[in-house]
Design a protein around this nucleic acid. Structure first.
Length: 694
RNA sequence: GGACGCUUAGUUCAGUGGUAGAACGUUCGAUUCACAUUCGAAAGGUCGCUGGUUCGAUCCCAGCAGCGUCCACCA
């Protein structure tokens, strides 16, 4: 039916517009079927290897722009390396995401009018595994939409049986070294999640509160949390503060509210004795320069307590309510209620000097946004001193190279100020602490920390994969998890295998909204990459992101980029279509041309290669765009339209094929599709394994 | 409080020690010839502010301002 000469020349239907929807899934299936994502299946002798480490997405996750950017960049490098003749391996997988996944299922249960406690542990765990079956692989399916060339035969989950064994091995390793201990410390306690969380999982948000000046014997002191006064075991001042020198190490008698007066009766005075200690952590310029010390409910106060051997009195329980130590008058009240009640009592007793408006930072749970209650709690800790040294050395000796280099500073600063890692969580979903009689779960990052090892068969160091593919060459991620994940992978790798788990670590840009705000589903500022793929095609998304990925500047995401990408894919399609017509049905590929245009594209190829190797994705993408559109299409094709000689044809063919190869890492689908349509290429492979033109 | 990054056309961003570029948008023109997801052309910027170095600064240095991010968390 078609009389289109293009169809005739190419031997197949070749519409005037590129249609990603008809191409992408089909091409991905072709790649899967080829087996070339698995390094052992790659043709030829490949002495050089290139292994990349993925950031496994959470099973709670949905593809977001960060994933799209991160994995696109990684895929660009992997695809180029594969074409350069490297034996390439990139393992996909998912993370069980302890607290995040548990919260997701708990939310679901709440909708059903039940809870994990009502279900019981066993039933709840069944629900967790159901969740993981249903949603766990959904995000990996979405990675296929992105065109990622990952080895699906090696897909890993952080709670696979072998992975669990690896985690246990790590725990025992540290335990035997004496680096793991159980200690009572003030930890960040999420009242809603009912678990301790790490410092890194606390977000501090500014909030308008009050600063209460409370009379304490001979002086007044300022606090934002009058209710914690029930747990005070000392007062503290700066050692050099002359105002309070005469009170140092004295026990002062002060008047306060009697916490045993029944709640329905007016407040009454009680006299207590309290010690004044000198501590350098006190800022003499805050408030009146004297502070109350509540070792059980404040990190700093806990440390002061340790230094001065102060008792700790816990007055708030794990549900965020005042406990028996708070006295019968306040017991059972929520923290906020207790604050109100005690303020009223103090006021009635004339013990409040003044109340000021005060803006300060309140800790919130990163996962559920509830207030954090610092609580004294028994937790497992991992000593960080030696591990931090290893991580420091790895960077200083360039076992791991960080790009851009400006991240070296924050990396070191973090290690210099590191505290022991609280590795226990009061959750049900995750890796159990592998000791007799222990009920707690390990922090999800404890298992993430060994991802590059465990995915390659560690702790079996004789394992073929481990032998051949460890350590990996390259990892890229967002700066947001530099400390949560990257640093921990580095010291884990060095400690457990004597080798850093990757050689190059690239911190990529963060995708922001057009207004420069963080993209977040909960804020409603997120953009769904799948919808963009639906609208513009994967290649357009990938190319659009790549053209903005400078590594220095965050990306303010607008769809303009994708419009450009989509047009470019179509332009390429039509350049190929034109070339096909020009060459005609009977074209036989001649010699590789040696002329100006051939020279030019060879220069382009060199430039692109070095730019990708230096992680200048934007420069590489833009340069390619400019050459293909404005040199090849606008100039060369226009100028040779009336020519019909063999050299012109050979040059066109050469330019097209070389362009397809160079563009393949950025736009894998359209390039592969076009490549498959060129009948004059004999003995061709899939483009994804053709030889890189440098 | 500490650190880092950014500030260039209407918008999103490149870029260079010798008075600036792209994409998208806008305006005008073209159309049986690969592509209207096109082609040609145009308009549009005292390169955040103030000083300094320099023959010369958008680019180097200092200070300031605004925006953003990370770390700390001061009660």
């Amino acid at each position: 039916m078609s009389t289109d000469p293009f169809d005739k020349a190419s031997g197949q239907d070749w519409p005037t517009a590129y249609n990603p929807k008809e191409t992408e899934d089909k091409i991905y299936q072709l790649w899967m079927k080829s087996g070339f994502f698995t390094p052992e299946n790659l043709p030829g002798d490949r002495p050089k290897k290139f292994i990349t480490c993925i950031a496994p997405p959470n099973i709670t996750g949905e593809l977001h722009m960060g994933h799209a950017l991160e994995n696109t960049l990684q895929d660009i490098i992997v695809r180029m390396k594969r074409m350069q003749g490297y034996k390439t391996l990139w393992i996909p997988g998912t993370d069980h995401a302890g607290i995040g996944a548990q919260n997701a299922v708990e939310k679901q249960l709440a909708k059903e009018g039940t809870s994990r406690h009502k279900l019981g542990r066993e039933k709840f765990m069944e629900r967790m595994w159901e969740w993981r079956e249903k949603y766990g692989h959904a995000i990996l399916e979405q990675f296929k939409k992105l065109g990622l060339s990952v080895d699906w035969t090696r897909t890993k989950f952080t709670m696979d049986l072998d992975y669990q064994k690896a985690v246990e091995k790590v725990f025992h390793h540290y335990h035997e070294k004496g680096w793991i201990y159980k200690g009572e410390r003030v930890v960040n306690w999420c009242v809603r999640c009912a678990t301790a969380i790490s410092d890194l999982e606390v977000n501090y948000v500014p909030e308008k509160g009050k600063l209460y000046y409370i009379k304490y014997g001979p002086f007044a002191l300022a606090t934002t949390r009058p209710e914690t006064k029930l747990g005070d075991t000392a007062l503290a001042v700066h050692p050099d503060d002359s105002r309070y020198k005469k009170y140092l190490d004295q026990y002062l008698e002060i008047e306060t509210t009697d916490n045993e007066t029944p709640a329905d009766q007016p407040a009454q005075i009680k006299k207590i004795k309290i010690r004044v200690v000198a501590d350098y952590s006190v800022d003499p310029n805050f408030g009146t320069g004297i502070i109350k010390v509540t070792p059980a409910h404040d990190m700093t106060d806990f440390e002061i307590g340790q230094r001065h051997d102060l008792p700790s009195v816990q007055i708030i329980d794990e549900r965020g309510r005042m406990n028996e130590n708070a006295g019968s008058r306040y017991q059972g009240l929520k923290v906020a209620e207790a604050r109100e009640k005690i303020t009223a009592d103090l006021s009635d007793l004339g013990l409040i000097e003044k109340i000021e408006d005060y803006e300060h930072n309140i800790g919130r749970c990163d996962r559920c946004n509830s207030d954090i209650e610092p609580l004294l709690s028994k937790q497992w800790f991992l000593k960080m001193k030696d591990l931090a040294k290893l991580a420091m050395k790895a960077i200083e000796e360039k076992q791991v190279r960080i790009t851009p280099e400006r991240w070296i500073g924050p990396y070191k600063t973090w290690l210099e100020n590191i505290r022991d890692w609280n590795i226990s969580r009061q959750l049900w979903w995750g890796h159990k602490i592998p000791l007799e009689g222990e009920e707690d779960i390990l922090d999800t990052w404890f298992s993430s920390a060994i991802w590059p090892l465990a995915t390659l068969g560690w702790p079996d160091m004789k394992n073929k994969d481990f032998q051949e593919y460890y350590p990996t060459d390259f990892i890229t991620s967002d700066r947001g998890i530099l400390f949560l994940w990257q640093v921990r992978m580095i010291f884990s790798g060095v400690e457990l295998t004597s080798q850093a788990p990757f050689k190059d670590m690239y911190i990529h840009a963060t995708v922001l909204t057009k207004d420069g705000k963080r993209m977040s589903k909960s804020l409603g500022t997120g953009v769904n990459p799948l919808e963009l793929i639906e609208k513009y095609g994967t290649d357009a998304l990938r190319f659009g992101l790549a053209t903005q990925a400078t590594g220095l500047q965050d990306i303010r995401f607008g769809e303009d980029l994708l419009v450009m990408g989509k047009k470019f894919a179509n332009k390429l399609w039509n350049i190929a279509r034109y070339t096909q017509l020009k060459l005609g049905e009977d074209y036989q590929l001649g010699n590789t041309p040696k002329n100006e245009m051939a020279g030019k594209i060879e220069e382009v190829a060199k430039h692109i290669t070095s730019q990708i190797e230096g992680y200048n994705f934007a420069e590489a993408a833009n340069h390619l765009y400019k050459f293909i559109w404005h040199e090849l299409a606008d100039k060369y094709i226009e100028e040779t339209k009336d020519k019909d000689d063999q050299e012109t044809k050979d040059t066109l063919a050469y330019l097209l094929v070389t362009s397809l190869k160079l563009l393949h890492p950025f736009m894998p689908f359209v390039t592969e599709e076009i490549y498959s349509r060129l009948p004059w290429l004999k003995e061709k492979n899939l483009l994804m394994i053709e030889k890189w033109p440098v």
